[in-house]
Amino acid sequence: QLNAMAHQIQEMFPQVPYHLVLQDLQLTRSVEITTDNILEGRIQVP
């Protein structure tokens, strides 16, 4: 299920590496919260 959620987020934010999306999802278990984390700059994109 997390993989499906990660792919959904990757479609919206292809610039964010998959492993970072998955790592955040493991903590949040939420597409909405992880999306917010990306938008708020809480996930550092190399």
Rank of each mutant, 00 (worst) to 15 (best):
Q1R: 12
Q1F: 11
Q1D: 15
Q1K: 12
Q1I: 14
L2T: 05
L2M: 08
L2I: 11
L2D: 03
L2V: 07
N3Y: 13
N3E: 15
N3T: 13
N3V: 15
A4H: 09
A4I: 12
A4F: 11
A4R: 11
A4M: 11
A4N: 09
A4S: 09
A4C: 12
A4V: 10
A4T: 09
M5G: 04
M5R: 04
M5I: 08
M5N: 04
M5Q: 07
M5P: 02
M5D: 05
M5V: 06
A6H: 02
A6P: 00
A6E: 01
A6C: 07
H7I: 12
H7M: 13
H7E: 10
H7D: 10
H7W: 10
Q8A: 13
Q8D: 06
Q8N: 07
Q8H: 10
Q8R: 13
Q8F: 12
I9N: 00
I9P: 00
I9K: 01
I9S: 00
Q10P: 01
Q10L: 14
Q10N: 10
Q10W: 15
Q10S: 12
Q10C: 15
E11S: 13
E11R: 15
E11W: 08
E11N: 11
E11T: 12
E11H: 14
M12G: 05
M12Y: 07
M12E: 06
F13D: 02
F13V: 02
F13W: 06
F13T: 01
F13E: 00
F13A: 02
F13K: 02
F13M: 03
F13I: 03
P14Q: 03
P14H: 03
P14A: 04
P14R: 03
P14K: 04
P14E: 03
P14V: 03
Q15W: 15
Q15S: 12
Q15M: 11
Q15K: 13
Q15R: 09
Q15H: 15
Q15I: 06
Q15F: 12
Q15G: 12
V16G: 03
V16P: 10
V16I: 14
V16A: 05
V16W: 08
V16M: 09
P17C: 12
P17W: 04
P17L: 05
P17I: 05
P17E: 08
P17Q: 06
Y18D: 10
Y18R: 14
Y18L: 15
H19M: 08
H19G: 07
H19Y: 14
H19F: 11
H19V: 08
H19W: 15
L20T: 07
L20R: 05
L20C: 13
L20H: 06
L20D: 12
L20W: 07
L20I: 10
L20G: 05
L20S: 07
V21T: 03
V21W: 03
V21K: 00
V21L: 10
V21P: 01
V21E: 03
V21R: 00
V21Q: 01
L22Q: 04
L22S: 02
L22D: 04
L22I: 10
L22G: 01
L22W: 09
Q23G: 07
Q23N: 08
Q23L: 12
Q23V: 08
Q23F: 09
Q23C: 11
Q23D: 09
Q23R: 07
D24Y: 04
D24Q: 02
D24V: 03
D24T: 00
D24L: 07
D24F: 05
L25M: 03
L25A: 00
L25K: 00
L25W: 00
L25H: 00
L25D: 02
Q26V: 11
Q26W: 12
Q26E: 13
Q26Y: 13
Q26N: 08
Q26K: 10
Q26M: 14
Q26G: 07
Q26T: 11
Q26R: 10
Q26D: 06
L27I: 14
L27G: 06
L27S: 09
L27R: 11
L27T: 11
L27P: 01
L27M: 12
L27W: 09
T28R: 00
T28C: 06
T28G: 02
T28P: 02
T28V: 02
R29Y: 10
R29T: 06
R29Q: 12
R29C: 14
R29H: 13
R29W: 13
S30E: 03
S30L: 03
S30Q: 03
S30W: 02
S30M: 03
V31E: 05
V31T: 06
V31C: 10
V31K: 08
V31S: 06
V31M: 10
E32R: 13
E32L: 10
E32H: 08
E32C: 10
E32Q: 13
E32N: 08
E32I: 10
I33G: 07
I33S: 07
I33E: 09
I33F: 06
T34E: 01
T34C: 02
T34M: 01
T34A: 01
T34K: 01
T34I: 02
T34R: 01
T35Q: 07
T35I: 15
T35G: 04
T35W: 07
T35N: 04
T35A: 10
T35R: 14
T35S: 08
D36H: 15
D36T: 15
D36A: 15
D36V: 15
D36M: 15
D36K: 15
N37Q: 00
N37D: 01
N37W: 03
N37E: 01
N37M: 02
N37K: 06
N37A: 04
N37F: 03
N37C: 03
N37R: 08
I38L: 07
I38D: 00
I38A: 02
I38M: 04
I38W: 04
I38N: 01
I38G: 01
L39A: 07
L39R: 14
L39G: 04
L39K: 12
L39D: 02
L39H: 06
L39I: 10
E40W: 09
E40D: 08
E40C: 14
E40G: 11
E40P: 00
E40K: 15
E40Q: 15
E40F: 11
G41S: 05
G41T: 03
G41V: 03
G41C: 08
G41L: 05
R42E: 02
R42I: 06
R42Q: 04
R42S: 04
R42F: 06
R42G: 03
I43P: 01
I43G: 02
I43D: 01
I43Q: 01
Q44S: 13
Q44F: 13
Q44H: 12
Q44E: 09
Q44V: 12
V45L: 11
V45W: 14
V45N: 10
V45G: 09
V45Y: 13
V45T: 10
V45A: 11
P46I: 11
P46H: 10
P46S: 11
P46Y: 07
